[in-house]
Design a protein around this nucleic acid. Structure first.
Length: 284
DNA sequence: CCTTGTGTTCTCCG
DNA sequence: CCGGAGAACACAAG
């Protein structure tokens, strides 16, 4: 379940290896994951080079010449994995302890002139690849809210989001149009760090509580990126390696286990139609 | 049955 | 009745 830290880790791991090499071939094994006409898709990529990789929230944007962009969204189980020649950097049969690559679910492949290959794997086929022009890219980017790591993420901007919201803190933090990049793992971790119950109504949060959520969001995202993301099920970086943040998870996936602070049992409920773990004692 | 990111559809409220 | 907000559903596969 790649969220902002995972997608950012993928971006950083792929950027040095997939940019500035001509694309020599593109295979689409499952046309469902390519938005629009797949033949146009393939024709538009061959002969081009990726100039850079950008990211907005959980959406990757491979920059192409002529102000065109390849958008890649991994949704739940998508993987973008780079390999080079026979030496599979992405670890086909991976090292012990490494996460599984979805090798039976390769949906598309992009070959480069230097012998590199980028595979888009997606077991559940929620993810997609889509080619867009500058206008479409800007329209899409405009739909996203503020980034917990961007300059625009100020206490004032964060507080404005809460004003008058008739929804829960959790639903608000998960809403990509308000704040981008937080998913179900980090939203519970952020609420725990801020000592706020996820089911609290956003409009009822005090100024001090909102500030605790603000600092928690920034801190958790930075820490998770520093640890190269969380590998819980299928997430791998651009080289097929898992992230290390799982050892720092305090609530996600720990329902019924003892709270790391008070040692009472963590509770699991449903909030915003998502599995939600929190400490009934530490979080108010 | 459970798991979740997001686009779409439904429902409610003022 | 309209618009907006938010909730609910759909999707996918193991």
């Amino acid at each position: 379940m790649p969220e902002l830290p995972e997608v950012e880790t993928i971006r950083r791991s792929l950027r040095p290896v997939v940019t500035h090499h001509a694309i020599t071939a593109v295979q689409v094994h499952d046309k469902k994951i390519v938005k629009g006409d797949q033949h146009t898709f393939v024709r538009s990529l061959i002969g081009k080079k990726f100039l850079d990789i950008d990211r907005v929230g959980k959406l990757l944007m491979f920059v192409l010449p002529g102000e065109r962009y390849l958008l890649a969204h991994l949704k739940m189980t998508g993987q973008l994995v780079y390999a080079h020649g026979k030496k599979v950097i992405a670890g086909g049969h991976s090292m012990p302890g490494d996460p599984a690559l979805s090798l039976n679910h390769v949906r598309a492949e992009i070959q480069f002139a230097d012998g590199g290959k980028l595979s888009f794997n997606d077991m559940r086929r929620f993810g997609y690849l889509r080619l867009v022009d500058k206008k479409e890219k800007e329209n899409i980017a405009a739909e996203f809210g503020i980034e917990p790591l961007a300059k625009g993420f100020t206490p004032e901007a964060f507080r404005d989001i809460f004003r008058g919201r008739k929804t829960t803190v959790k639903a608000l933090l998960l809403n990509q149009k308000l704040i981008t990049g937080i998913g179900n793992i980090y939203v519970d971790e952020i609420c725990f760090a801020a000592k706020i119950r996820p089911m609290r109504l956003a409009a009822r949060a005090t100024r001090a509580e909102i500030m605790r959520l603000y600092h928690a969001a920034e801190a958790v995202m930075k820490h998770a990126i520093a640890e190269r993301g969380t590998t819980f099920n299928t997430y791998v970086d651009g080289h097929g390696k898992g992230g290390n943040f799982v050892k720092h998870l305090k609530v996600y996936g720990r329902g019924g286990e003892p709270c790391v602070i008070c040692h009472r049992a963590l509770k699991k409920i449903r909030v915003a139609a998502r599995g939600t773990v929190f400490c009934p004692y530490c979080q108010k």
